[in-house]
């Protein structure tokens, strides 16, 4: 269960305070596929970053399976990110110096586990995303779609409780986007909790629930079926 209680976020730029999110309260059950939509600058990515522990709220509380993400030390938050959250970025954020296999294994390498011990798991994940022939390739040798698939495999390596995706197809062509959507749907069908930020309504259709953010406020929170009905 992921729970946000009265979460607000304000950025400071010089002497100016810029409020981005206002009193957001959401509760997401395990196994859900939540799409977060909203116009540019509405605060949807900020919301995702707060859920993933990449950023800290100015006020309010965030829990993942009852573990608080607010008001804790940086190292504790880091370990939660490492072990309980998988992240898929719009620009993939793969390390150019590592091969596909090493990029996927990176969160476990951070744990101190040698690559030899996680090799089979990495190979399985890369097979799962259809990159069994590309394991030794470095990001520069992969297409955009392939890079994102490597990023998906990396996000799954720690068997996270929640998978966060920030515009995962925002930088891909339609064919690659389709492949990624199918992959995410399949993962959700296998029980993976997914929260995805998108501005694309077609992408949002992959989910089971749609949250809309507008000017930093929670505008709506409905089952997708209700929205499409």
């Amino acid at each position: 269960m992921i729970e946000l209680k009265e979460v607000s976020k304000t950025y400071t730029q010089g002497i100016k305070n810029i409020p981005v999110l206002h009193n957001i309260s959401i509760s997401i059950k395990l196994g859900e596929f939540v799409s977060i939509m909203g116009p540019s600058g509405s605060g949807k990515s900020t919301l995702l970053n707060l859920i993933g522990g990449i950023d800290q709220p100015t006020s309010g509380e965030i829990f993942i399976n009852s573990k608080p993400l607010h008001g804790i030390k940086d190292d504790e938050l880091t370990l939660i990110r490492r072990k309980h959250v998988g992240y898929i970025f719009q620009f993939f954020n793969l390390l150019p110096i590592l091969s596909a296999m090493e990029n996927v294994g990176l969160p476990l390498l951070l744990e101190g586990i040698p690559l030899s011990k996680i090799k089979s798991k990495v190979e399985t994940l890369l097979q799962k995303v259809g990159l069994e022939g590309r394991m030794e390739h470095r990001p520069e040798q992969l297409s955009g779609g392939e890079m994102q698939r490597v990023a998906i495999a990396r996000s799954l390596i720690t068997d996270p409780e929640v998978l966060l995706a920030d515009e995962p197809t925002g930088n891909l062509d339609s064919r690659s986007s389709e492949e990624i959507f199918n992959m995410l749907k399949k993962l959700n069908a296998e029980g993976q909790t997914i929260i995805m930020v998108t501005h694309d309504s077609k992408a949002a259709d992959c989910g089971t629930r749609l949250i809309t953010i507008k000017d930093g406020f929670l505008a709506s929170d409905k089952k997708l079926k209700e929205v499409r009905a």
Binding site: D74, L79, R82, K83, P107
Partner: peptide, 16 residues
């Protein structure tokens, strides 16, 4: 800096 950000996002601690 970007790489550090990615590593931090993936769970690398400051001391690491």
């Amino acid at each position: 800096k970007k790489e550090i950000g990615i590593l931090r996002a993936l769970g690398a601690t400051r001391s690491q």
